[in-house]
Simulated assay, not measured.
Amino acid sequence: MKNRIFGQVLKSLILVAVVASTATAAHAAEATSSSPWAGVGGSLGGLLLGVIQLVVGLSLAAFSINKGLALLSRLLGGIDIWGEIKAKNVAVALLAAGVVISYTRVISGGIDAMTRSLLTLGASGVLNGVIGLVAGVINLFVAIAVASFAITVVFRVMDKLTVGIDEKAEFKANNAAIGVIYCGIMIGVSSLVAAGVTGIGSGVSLFLNALVTAFMA
Rank of each mutant, 00 (worst) to 15 (best):
G7V: 03
L10S: 02
L10F: 14
S12D: 13
S12W: 03
V16E: 15
A17D: 02
A20T: 01
T22W: 11
A23I: 00
A23Q: 11
T24S: 11
H27A: 12
H27M: 12
E30H: 13
S33L: 04
S34R: 04
P36Y: 14
A38P: 14
G39S: 14
G41M: 07
G42S: 13
S43H: 09
L48T: 14
L49E: 10
Q53S: 11
V55R: 06
V56G: 03
V56T: 12
G57F: 13
S59E: 15
S59Q: 14
L60D: 10
S64L: 07
S64G: 12
L72H: 04
S73R: 01
L76R: 01
G78Q: 13
G78N: 10
G83C: 01
E84A: 04
I85L: 15
I85W: 12
K86W: 08
N89K: 14
A93Q: 11
L94D: 13
L95I: 13
L95F: 03
I101N: 03
T104E: 07
T104D: 01
R105E: 12
V106C: 03
R116L: 05
S117C: 01
L118K: 05
L119D: 01
T120M: 06
V126H: 05
L127A: 04
L127Q: 11
V130R: 04
G132L: 05
L133A: 08
A143V: 06
A143M: 06
A147Y: 13
A150P: 04
I151C: 03
T152K: 14
F155C: 02
F155Y: 09
M158N: 05
D159Y: 01
K160Y: 11
I165Q: 04
K172L: 12
A176P: 01
A177Q: 11
A177E: 10
I178L: 11
I185N: 12
M186V: 00
S190H: 08
S191K: 07
A195G: 12
S202D: 12
L208F: 14
N209V: 08
A210G: 00
L211D: 00
T213A: 10
A214H: 08
M216D: 04
